[in-house]
């Protein structure tokens, strides 16, 4: 959570620049505060993992990055720039030009995220033809290359296959091929391994990591799986009730989380504890996003709550330059970093 400072002269602007990003869903019955002031920057080629449980706002944040939340009910405010483009104010037409080109997305369910009655080849081809002035034959050739890039065996035959003729893993590879078809600078991944078998999960993760390095893409990866986050992320942001409650480099954050919620989350997973150590759980349940508490949203479940927690939402505090947590127990000793890039 870097401060809202200008870029130092000469430094490349970040790929994603979000300040006080807020997303609400407004219907006649209720207003759901899904994302409540998210600040972050993502550098070219960097992988950020947003970690959180269901309903923490991680998918909504991700979709906001390409304005893919349901139109009509979604209200976005704050600052959001992707590749220098203002994603809050841009026209629908301008945003559609960026989607699939500059920024593209992989979804959780490869089963339902592909059109069941169009062949894989055609779904890749139409993406290429949408964004680039190439011939149909050239688009077909690129589609074949892409299937080979995502390591689909007998790629040529698979171009003519319908989604239901492929296994879950192959379908997700095809999904990745579609997402990469116009060489995006930013890839958004919405729990892309959650619906897959454990062995296939690892293959897809390794493939994504490899492609990310080869193509130098920035990636925002959403998951509730700590293992997945540790595998792929440079930095991790832990999300709770629509806010980044902690952010930092993957290794440091996983070794010693600062925020009580992040500590609870890590304590509730098997990762390198001594044998026989019981897993801890976090009591209670996440807050209702229609009526958020005044203070820290985690306070009702937190073992360390004190009156100050309930008064106002804690501002991010930085014990060391590269890390931040929204908890009043964390010392705020580090100077804000001069630059924005992590």
């Amino acid at each position: 959570m870097p401060p809202d400072s200008a870029n130092p002269p000469g430094a490349a602007p970040p790929l994603v620049h979000a300040r006080d990003l807020t997303v609400r869903f407004v219907t006649r019955d209720a207003t759901v505060h899904a994302v409540n002031g998210v600040d972050f920057d993502l550098a070219q080629g960097e992988v950020l993992c947003i970690l959180g449980e269901s309903g923490s706002g991680k998918s909504v944040t991700l979709r906001a990055l390409m304005r893919l939340n349901p139109p009509g009910v979604t209200r976005v405010s704050g600052t959001l720039r992707v590749g220098g483009h203002d994603m809050v104010a841009a026209s629908a037409r301008a945003v559609a030009d960026l989607r699939g080109g500059l920024v593209s997305m992989i979804f959780q369910e490869p089963m339902t995220a592909l059109d069941p009655i169009f062949t894989i080849g055609r779904q890749i081809r139409e993406t290429i033809l949408r964004h680039e002035k190439v011939s149909g034959a050239e688009a077909d050739r690129r589609a074949l290359e892409l299937l080979e890039l995502v390591q689909i065996p007998s790629a040529k035959r698979r171009l003519a296959a319908y989604p239901h003729e492929l296994s879950g893993g192959l379908r997700q590879r095809a999904m990745i091929a579609i997402a990469l078809s116009c060489r995006p600078k930013l890839l958004l991944a919405d729990e892309p391994t959650t619906a897959l078998d454990a062995t296939v999960q690892i293959q897809i993760l390794l493939l994504l990591r490899q492609l990310q390095r080869e193509l130098g893409m920035g990636v925002v990866f959403v998951t509730h799986d700590l293992g997945v986050a540790g595998e792929i992320a440079d930095r991790i942001a832990v999300m709770y009730a629509g806010r980044f409650i902690e952010e930092g480099p993957t290794g440091a954050l996983m070794r010693a989380p600062l925020h009580p919620y992040a500590q609870g989350l890590l304590g509730a997973t098997v990762h390198g504890q001594r044998r026989g150590t019981p897993l801890t759980t976090i009591p209670g349940s996440p807050p209702n996003l229609e009526r958020l508490p005044e203070g820290c949203a985690f306070a009702p479940r937190c073992p360390y709550t004190e009156p100050a927690c309930l008064a106002a939402v804690p501002a991010p505090r930085r014990p060391v330059p590269d890390r931040a947590a929204r908890c009043i127990r964390v010392p705020d000793t580090a100077q804000p970093p001069a630059g924005i890039a992590a």
């Binding site: 390409m66 893919l68 037409r93 559609a96 030009d97 960026l98 989607r99 699939g100 080109g101 593209s104 997305m105 979804f107 369910e109 339902t112 995220a113 592909l114 059109d115 069941p116 009655i117 169009f118 139409e126 993406t127 949408r130 964004h131 999904m175 579609i178």
Partner: peptide, 23 residues
Amino acid sequence: DFVTTLRGKGLRPFGIFRHVVKN
């Protein structure tokens, strides 16, 4: 879900319309 994918690919309303018609 696949309509979200289509929007995510940048398809304009007419491009999405073609998919909806066929489905």
